[in-house]
Write a protein that binds this DNA or RNA. Structure first.
Lengths: 221, 221
DNA sequence: ACGCTAATGTACGAACCAGTACGTTAGCTA
DNA sequence: TAGCTAACGTACTGGTTCGTACATTAGCGT
């Protein structure tokens, strides 16, 4: 992410802590996403940087902390995007549909983030647990969902008494699966879920489903 | 899976190719699921077996082929379970709901399989691609969905014109996410999606959602 | 302009780990 | 029961990989 090829020495500076640090994070993100935590090579990260391995240890301390830093930044990017969500001016139905669509688009555009989350889960979320930063940050998207849901339920538009966290899980799960399991699903069922040509199809499908669920007539009560 | 502690020498035999092979697969499944492909240690697998590392290479050829064999068996178990699906005697609505519930239960009961699939996706499904066995096997669940869907659509019960593969993806995605992302989701949102105590809740929720989608009144056409 | 420190580079070590060379034996078969 | 082969064990190696000791310099502050 944000891996813009900067001029070699912005401002004529040969040494720039911030730039070096950021460059390491960029390359490390790609390498960890490419090969997993244990598959990633610190030497490889260093080689693809304009600095050396020494600097990775200088700035981050070790491979574990580097991965934690990568996760922190990746989650930061997502949270930032979520804060730019602007759907609450819409009616609840349109707002939820829009949110689902934006989530789908966002996941498709950030496959590295999806991979990092998969990897972190393989390791029991131990890096998240080790990070004060990540333990603290909430989820703006969750707040948005909470407000839309309340509005929809109070107005009687939404009949389902879902909870915001669960709805978030439902929307995320499909968007996540589509990108995370793209390869096995494609190999086994011959359909590339994450093909951009199918994006519109799945945007509609996910929106339809979530709305159908939220607005369905209740069988009882 | 099926890691029953057999007597040391069934039938008094000291050497038993089938048993040794199966034991290696059992332990390898756990080890790969525990640590990922690169994190898994061949020595560790050997140590937790009643045989030695030499045998792993004797029977499987190498780490890559061992992982492929582990995947093949894991998918085999799933397919076998899918073949035991018996829901087509139900009406389409009940059949789909049942299928969703069984998928949810099954995923919860096989976290190792979920982890293996996550790991295989990190590696671009290269082991599936390398396996003739896996390239050949279809999905009984998909056939079941196809038939139920056709019945439901022809009878007019199902209004959505979903395709079986997409519906399978939708159902799988939630069941998969619930187990695969249990740790990060739990750490970030404080809710353990895969807690058995919440199983009933999510069974109902998933069923409600899929049925709501399939039976919703169409806005147009 | 001078010195001090943050920033950087080089070269190396020690542990680890996949894979193998070589030797041995159980147990089926004739 | 003899012998043959599939099954098994030990001990080792060569390369890899995380991490660091040591040496160096850019560039800011005064």
């Amino acid at each position: 992410m944000t891996s813009v090829e900067e001029p070699l020495h912005p401002g004529g500076k040969l040494r720039d802590a911030a730039r070096t640090r950021a460059e390491i994070l960029d390359v490390a993100t790609q390498e960890f996403a490419r090969a997993g935590y244990d598959g990633a090579r610190v030497d490889e990260i260093a080689a693809r940087t304009r600095t050396t391995k020494r600097m990775i240890y200088y700035y981050f301390g070790g491979k574990q902390q580097l991965f934690t830093a990568v996760l922190e930044r990746a989650y930061g990017v997502i949270r930032e995007a979520e804060q730019r969500l602007d759907v609450e001016h819409l009616d609840p139905v349109a707002a939820i549909r829009r949110l689902a669509e934006l989530t789908l688009d966002h996941h498709e555009q950030h496959p590295d983030f999806i991979r990092l989350v998969s990897i972190e889960n393989i390791h029991g979320a131990e890096h998240i647990a080790a990070s004060e930063k990540l333990a603290r940050i909430g989820s703006p998207a969750l707040d948005v969902i909470r407000r839309i849901l309340t509005a929809g339920q109070e107005s009687g538009l939404f009949t389902a008494d879902v909870d915001a966290v669960d709805l978030h899980a439902v929307i995320s799960s499909f968007c996540f699966f589509r990108v995370a399991n793209r390869h096995t699903f494609g190999a086994l069922f011959g359909r590339d879920l994450a093909d951009p040509g199918r994006r519109e199809h799945y945007r509609t499908m996910l929106g339809d489903m979530v709305i159908a669920y939220l607005t369905a007539e209740r069988a009882d009560d």
